[in-house]
Amino acid sequence: MTTDIKRRRILGAAPAFLAGMAAANAMPSALAAAPSSMAGCADAERTRITYYQVPMQKRWPVNEQLVQSKSYAKYFTKDLVAPMAMVNALEQGPLPAEFILPPTVAGLDKMMRTFESAPVSGYALVEEGPLAYAQSRHVFPGVTAKMFEWWFTWHPLESERYMLWFPYAHIHNSVDDPARLANSKLTYAERLYGNPNHITEYIGNLFLDGYISFDTPESFGVNPAALKTNGFTFNASGIISPADARNAPLVLMIHLGRDTPAGLEMINRYWIGTHSSFNRFKKFPDGARLSKAVTQRMGLDKAALENFAYEMALHDMTEFTCLGGFLPQIYREYGA
């Protein structure tokens, strides 16, 4: 039985359970010992997503046609779900001021101190900049840091693999040096860092055509001592720049993960737009001025950026829940 969709609720109200998903896993008993905010995103209660922007609706059958001949086509799905804890967090509207972080070194320091108490999902406008800001905290039962490292070196080699991650929104992914990315004799860092991914996808109605330059979290200002203290070993942080302005840092993206008894725990943060602190990125000199010009050219005023922040939070919640559902199975088949 379902209820009417109201206001911000763009997700189906009928809970779905991991047992009913193609990529379901048994819930580890250790989850009971996890913090309540953490358990909220790792429990079995899910709700089906029933609303997609029109460009995303049109993209799904195109992706289905492209993927169907691939050996991994069974992981491509139409029925996507999200954790109720994340849905409920977004239903509260923009984040309270105490949880809105700037993309500065001080903001990243606060992120590492407060991620366990922050809402599991959220969005806001950062007035200084301005910037869209989105955050999330996921727990993936049965998933490890090793699996995520494999995924980030495997999926960019074919765009159809990228489509599995978000069947309605992901279009293309390629990498500057595919031979280096595929070279298993190199470390994860040697394969991914300095080897940009070219992505095209939809974030809500917005078509994004950009390059992700991955690098160490320390290069963006995350304290290495905080990483070690909190046990974060997985990293897929980077700067996203528009394809037609590759020297302009439009997005600072932080993805950090750590293995826990309940599964991989991941914290994600996105700052989209422009900010004076963007000048600190060594690979993006004059970043503040260039990002401001790009933001203005794209028509990203404060209202558009706040909407972008909400769409980014929804996108993150959807794509990572989808990936976490099938990653253990696809890893055993192609990566182990």
Rank of each mutant, 00 (worst) to 15 (best):
T2D: 11
D4P: 00
I5G: 01
A14F: 09
A14E: 15
P15V: 07
A16W: 15
A16R: 13
L18V: 00
A19N: 10
M21D: 05
A24H: 14
A24V: 10
P28M: 03
A30I: 02
A30T: 12
A30Q: 00
A33P: 00
M38P: 00
A39M: 07
A39W: 01
G40P: 05
C41W: 10
R46E: 00
R46W: 03
T47E: 11
T47V: 11
Y52G: 02
P55L: 14
P55D: 09
W60V: 05
P61T: 13
L66Q: 12
K74N: 12
K74R: 15
Y75L: 07
F76D: 06
T77M: 05
K78G: 13
P83F: 11
A85K: 11
M86A: 14
V87C: 07
L90D: 09
P94C: 14
P94H: 12
P96M: 13
P96Y: 02
E98G: 06
F99D: 13
F99M: 09
F99Y: 15
T104E: 09
A106W: 05
D109S: 15
K110T: 13
M112S: 00
R113M: 14
F115M: 10
F115R: 07
E116Y: 11
S117K: 13
S117M: 14
A118C: 09
V120K: 02
V126F: 07
G129D: 04
A134R: 03
Q135G: 07
Q135E: 04
S136I: 01
F140V: 02
T144K: 10
K146A: 15
E149H: 08
T153W: 03
P156C: 08
E160I: 05
R161Y: 03
Y162K: 08
M163D: 06
F166Q: 12
Y168H: 12
H170P: 08
S174V: 08
D176G: 00
R180N: 02
A182C: 09
S184E: 13
S184H: 10
K185T: 01
T187N: 02
H198T: 12
G204W: 06
N205M: 06
N205Y: 08
L206R: 15
D209W: 04
F214M: 01
P217R: 01
F220K: 05
G221T: 10
N223T: 07
P224A: 11
P224I: 11
A226Q: 06
L227E: 04
L227T: 05
K228S: 09
I240K: 06
A243Y: 03
D244S: 14
A248P: 04
L250K: 05
V251T: 15
I254T: 00
R258W: 02
P261D: 13
G263M: 06
L264A: 10
E265I: 07
I267F: 01
N268P: 05
W271M: 00
I272T: 12
I272D: 03
G273Q: 05
T274S: 15
S276R: 14
S277M: 09
K282R: 09
K282E: 08
A293D: 15
A293H: 05
T295N: 02
M298D: 12
D301H: 04
K302H: 07
A303M: 08
N307T: 13
E311A: 15
M312Q: 11
L314A: 08
L314H: 14
L314S: 08
H315Y: 13
T321D: 10
C322I: 01
L323S: 05
G324V: 00
F326S: 14
Q329R: 00
R332F: 06
R332V: 01
G335L: 07
G335V: 09
A336K: 07
